[in-house]
């Protein structure tokens, strides 16, 4: 069965849908967690510490966190590899363009591929910036995420990269969530408007939620 799924264009699209939904549900939690920054340094740093102690004493320190990370890495790779292979197939299936060109599909639909590439690059930067601290501006302090976040959003490039990525993720979800529903066979005529509305609300809420943090730092609400 796994072979049938992976070898088929419809099956590979299913892999994209499922991995996309896994990442989407993570993003919702991530966004909500980020907003704790507005309750001050102690609460935010305490929340970050709690993330490492989830499941204790059954789980060891950071085990749950690593479990989540592994699931996410698998989802990102599955999503990326199937997107790459499907895109290759799509481009090959339409080798010659029409001479008479027309604007097609919505902006969110047309930018799925570039948006995905932007997001993949962003994830790398984001981890190097705020998880490992490798490319962090100023002194990165392990266990002091509040200060690290303020540092990142005190630089023009930190804000720019982040805002571009957040807008890209919003667009990606707008088309992606609804598409995933169609791919998994959950869409129907009766449900179509509701699904599109949920996709738009999810995209908007996530975009605004994620943007709140850099905007908070820029306006001095978080410092």
């Amino acid at each position: 069965m796994a072979r049938t799924v992976w070898d088929s264009s419809v099956g590979k699209k299913t892999v994209m849908a499922v991995s996309g939904l896994i990442m989407l549900s993570y993003l919702v939690v991530h966004m909500l967690g980020n907003l704790k920054i507005f309750f001050g340094s102690d609460e935010f740093n305490g929340y970050a510490h709690w993330l490492r102690t989830i499941g204790e004493p059954f789980m060891h320190y950071e085990w749950t966190l690593w479990l989540v990370r592994i699931v996410l890495v698998v989802a990102v790779i599955a999503h990326g590899v199937s997107a790459y292979q499907l895109s290759r197939r799509d481009i090959k299936a339409r080798p010659s363009k029409y001479v008479h060109k027309k604007p097609r599909a919505s902006y969110a639909t047309r930018t799925m591929r570039w948006g995905g590439i932007i997001l993949a690059l962003f994830i790398v930067w984001h981890i190097l910036d705020l998880t490992t601290g490798t490319v962090h501006s100023g002194g990165f302090q392990e266990g002091r995420p509040y200060q690290n976040v303020v540092d990142t959003f005190s630089t023009w490039y930190g804000n720019t990269i982040y805002i571009v990525a957040v807008l890209a993720v919003g667009m990606h979800i707008r088309h992606g969530f609804w598409s995933a529903a169609q791919t998994l066979g959950a869409g129907s005529r009766a449900r179509d408007r509701a699904l599109k509305a949920v996709a738009n609300v999810l995209a908007l809420v996530l975009t605004c939620g994620f943007l709140a943090v850099p905007v908070g730092v820029m306006t001095g609400v978080v410092s």
């Binding site: 799509d90 097609r104 598409s179 791919t183 959950a186 005529r189």
Partner: peptide, 27 residues
């Protein structure tokens, strides 16, 4: 190629086969 749900097909279809038809096949 594969489906990226742009909906162009259903717009072009002279017989009005709806896009949700693809959802039905996926299911």
């Amino acid at each position: 190629g594969g489906c990226t749900l742009t909906g162009e097909c259903a717009t072009a279809c002279p017989k009005g086969i709806p896009l949700v038809s693809i959802t039905g096949m996926n299911k």
